[in-house]
Design a protein around this nucleic acid. Structure first.
Lengths: 360, 360
DNA sequence: CTGAAAGCGCTTACAG
DNA sequence: CTGAAAGCGCTTACAG
């Protein structure tokens, strides 16, 4: 009786074993045998690279359907040494900029028959490296890399493999990698000149990082714009916390408090914020003090996230055209993959767009 | 002289040819030869699956570095028949829900050494099918599919390949695919009961689609909640346009105008909106009429997009916990990939979360 | 119009 | 502790 149980269990195990992982996958050899032709012919029937007799063709088609044969792209790629596949590695899929850029990239690459697979590194250097090596060992035909890190040295290794890379927003300087950059410096300059032309002389900055490359540039442009207008730089009105809404809130509260204690008449009449989330936090803080936007304090942000148009008052900001950037990257990559372009590294910078709304 | 030019050009071509695509890739055989051992040993040195003499180990390591050898995951996968890779196919990477879900999925899968590659179908059935077959022909170990289409029939084919699939928000009913669903019906019910408890009797609905599956459910729940409270359904105050901000604006304007002409006293005191973007548009429209939110008209949305907390007044809404959903999916997939679970299809529904803010 | 066979770059039973 | 060889599932010169 016990044996019956054991036998039953064995049966179940065997069944799930057979119908499960180890079910024999049907190969081109199987359909060849079944159709009574050679693998060669099946392969050509599939690819159309060589004429195949109509009846043979039909027979093969039938067998393929009967057996539910699905060719292995893996095996094919190993043989032909390319995959029609490109990897997009991004630091934060949750930041709306990257999805939009991804669409731009994909929309141009898909026309040429490339699949783009998106790899999200969560801003983690280790994950980035893992993805990079994983993906290149899987023989993607191209990589686009958007990274917060300086990947020059890591990338140097990949260059040996001659897989085309284009990099976004980086300081990479390697012979075979194209890089497309955003024009943050000019974008900030534009915003600052706008403020200055409106008569503002006391312009604070919220979120002025020295460390994060992007924000360092924005900050530099901020100071330069002040300088160019003959306005002295005053570090009592530039303060930085996290690049988030509450970071913006806290930084602005700190600024306003500080200035109130020292010399209330010196309150800034405008705030340039390192990004939109920070700007939204700054607006929260300003309201806290019963001040009005833009009359008491004007606010400008950076990035033009979706919420920028939705909040009240709507936020004056500067936009990096993510979709356009994606398209440009795709174009560059395509030229390198096709060998259409084989020259030295190209550096392209995409123009920003100033978006005037109600907050300044 | 001409010949010299030609020769030069030939040289350049040859150089870029050699150093370019067709540069010989270094294989395990190359390092074996160079190190004076067999491929077998190199392979084991790499994998650690068999003891290797320390000196041999060291020699191999050196050669690997010298030759800059990078093993081909492609070849490896072909041999071992799995890839440690899973594909997440989503309809719209630009909709913040999916990136968040992707993170949840990735965070749990990465611990088990799986890479997740994200495929964005742009809501296009053809692209979805292409990705699905491409990815399965590349032997991913698992697929998670979030689709707006009914993929039952297409999926039936994949089942033969026994690759584990878990599907999100679908009506798929196939023996081996798990599906996790959102609880929109209960979520809407909760929101409606909240409104009713607050004393609202005239509750309109903006964005009440019969066609889109998601919105049909939300609408059904809306009517049922009315019914349950003994409030008659009045189709003069349910109107639908696009599921966008301007759609919400237009629909609400239409409703308000219409009601004003016919019987002004019958203006709704609350609006349930099919999603947050529609709700934001509705709020625009309400302001247009000089009405206040929530005092004249309360507004509730659905989804809890980022902007919901940022706008003024902040939006009362219902959240689908995208991150949690991603994690749950990852868990189910993992169990199936490991064979830990081999039973019939599991159907899990993730609880919503009601988020009370200022608009209602 | 069709086939036999080599090879893409690995892993792994088998043998020592 | 180490090797020779088969095989994963394709494609493609070569030959007819």
């Amino acid at each position: 009786l016990l044996y019956i149980y054991i036998y039953a269990i064995f049966n179940i195990l065997q069944r799930s074993f057979l119908s499960g992982w180890y079910k024999k996958v049907v190969t081109i050899a199987d359909v060849a045998k079944q159709a009574g032709v050679s693998q060669t012919t099946v392969s050509h029937a599939l690819s159309g690279k060589r004429p195949v007799a109509p009846q043979t063709q039909a027979r093969i088609a039938q067998v393929i359907k009967d057996l539910n044969f699905r060719p292995s792209a893996l095996a094919r790629s190993l043989r032909i040494q390319h995959t029609q596949t490109i990897a997009l590695v991004i630091p934060d899929i949750t930041n709306p900029f990257y999805p939009t850029m991804a669409r731009g990239l994909q929309d141009i690459l898909i026309q040429s028959g490339y699949y783009v697979f998106i790899c999200n590194t969560e801003n983690d250097l280790k994950q980035e490296i893992t993805f990079l090596t994983e993906v290149s060992s899987r023989h993607v035909d191209g990589i686009v890399l958007a990274s917060h890190y300086d990947r020059t040295s890591a990338l140097r290794e990949f260059l040996n493999d001659k897989i085309p890379i284009v990099s976004f927003e980086s300081s990479i300087n390697l012979p075979n990698v194209d890089v497309v950059n955003t024009d943050d410096y000019q974008g900030v300059k534009h915003a600052m000149e706008y403020l200055i032309k409106k008569g503002h002389r006391r312009i604070g900055m919220i979120g002025s990082s020295q460390h994060h490359p992007t924000y360092a540039i924005r900050r530099a442009s901020y100071s330069d714009a002040l300088l160019a207008a003959g306005i002295p730089y005053d570090d009592t009105i530039v303060v930085q916390k996290d690049f988030t809404r509450v970071g913006g809130l806290e930084a602005t509260q700190y600024l306003l408090n500080h200035v109130k204690d020292i010399m209330p008449e010196n309150r800034p009449t405008a705030l340039f914020c390192a990004n939109d989330m920070v700007a939204i936090g700054a607006m929260d803080a300003i309201r806290t003090y019963g001040l009005s936007i833009p009359d008491d304090i004007a606010v400008v942000g950076y990035d033009d996230i979706e919420a920028a148009a939705l909040i009240y008052p709507s936020l004056t900001t500067v936009l990096n055209p993510a979709y356009k950037i994606g398209q440009t990257i795709g174009q560059l990559l395509l030229e390198r993959m096709r060998g259409t372009y084989q020259g030295p590294s190209r550096h392209i910078t995409i123009p920003y767009q100033f978006i005037q709304r109600d907050s300044a």
